[in-house]
């Protein structure tokens, strides 16, 4: 990171206690404190959140779109992982 080109930070907000933090966008900042302050200004002007997480974008490792098939198709043929795969008679309740 150079001094003229601040790091990119990903911003996550918790809208209320009980819900998990959700990604809302990103911004530039010179350090984590500034990132929080900027996130407050940019992303919570209308009470969108009660807690902010900022993470340097470069610290996020993402799966590659090319890997989509090898990663996710194996679960397509495992229908037995879903409750609806099993025939439970309608007379049997609470299941």
């Amino acid at each position: 990171m150079s001094e003229s080109n601040w790091k990119l930070w990903e911003v996550f907000l918790r809208s209320k206690n009980g819900l998990s933090h959700k990604h809302v966008g990103s911004l530039h900042a010179a350090d984590a404190d500034m990132a929080i302050k900027n996130a407050r200004d940019v992303y919570t002007r209308r009470s969108e959140g009660i807690s902010i997480w900022v993470v340097p974008s470069e610290e996020i490792t993402a799966s590659s779109p090319d890997e989509k098939d090898p990663l996710f198709t194996p679960s397509d043929d495992k229908v037995y992982r879903h409750p609806t795969f099993y025939d439970i008679p309608d007379d049997v309740e609470h299941m």
């Binding site: 009980g18 819900l19 037995y80 879903h82 409750p83 795969f85 099993y86 025939d87 439970i88 299941m95």
Partner: peptide
């Protein structure tokens, strides 16, 4: 919060467990 959220995920998956057992 974190315990409650883990439970939501677990309960969704448990339904398969109980039904396969009953079967």
């Amino acid at each position: 919060g974190p315990y409650a959220r883990a439970m939501v995920k677990i309960c969704k998956e448990e339904s398969f467990h109980q039904r396969q057992g009953y079967e």
